[in-house]
Amino acid sequence: MLDALNVSRMLIAATETSGGKGGHHFYSFEGLMVYTGLTLAIVIGVLSLARNGITPRYFTNWFTQRLEQLYLFIENLCVGIVGSHGRHYVPLVCSIWLIIFFANLVGLFFPYTPSMDLSFNLALAFIAVGYVQWEGMRANGVGGHFIHFSGPKLGVALIPISIMIFMIEIISEVMKNVSLSVRLYGNIFGGHEATDAMNALGAKMISLGNGQYLGVPFGAFLLPIKLLTCLVQALVFCLLFCVYLSLVTHHDEDHGSDGDHAPAHA
């Protein structure tokens, strides 16, 4: 019991190197590593608990049944968006879902979480977008993948237009990294800041006399919606990953119709 208390105190102290200007804490690299390790330990623990229940006939373990539902959900997502060959991408998408979801869950109980840090999210986005490029090159060839950026075939007279489309597509491809990472970072960090602000609101709610106050943790009322945010952000990351994958691998059968995929190029 005392050990658990000490460990949690160490976890909290690991991130807060210095109270910076404006009341914001600056978090250390070691703290990020500690919390990433904690997240990975939780993920691996849950997966090993689930692995115990795998039997040839049916799954008896509670964890195994729930994880099977998660697997079916992710498989449904991949097959629904990418197409019939989407089952190939289930392992990566499922790992990314697990890591983001449990990293967000850690943020509900601890003052810090890996997904509250832009560097962790940017690394995840690099993995996702880099894998999309790799899959695009595997599906269309290296040349075909880059020609695919220049939009539909417009003819010789409109080559300047094609070059412009190519440059815009390259920019949007780079911005996919930024959009994936900033979305996750903004949602988790913003939720944390909102909880802090609500707690500060109730910090001096009940006066005990002689200058002491009993705080009311209003931030706790935000927990349900933060839990929903955890789930939705993990889902949205995987959803967009699948959409990007479907954009680069979908052109095996119909190469002419590029126009109807435009909304996902933001």
């Binding site: 970072y185 903004g186 949205v236 967009l240 959409v243 909304p263």
Partner: peptide
């Protein structure tokens, strides 16, 4: 409902990103 939820979440993600980029960048 399944397809609509997927499309709705994608659209919401892009709208949300606009504000997040404004706020943080």
């Amino acid at each position: 409902i399944g397809k609509l939820q997927t499309a709705m979440l994608i659209a919401m993600a892009f709208v949300e990103l606009v504000f997040l980029l404004t706020a943080f960048v």
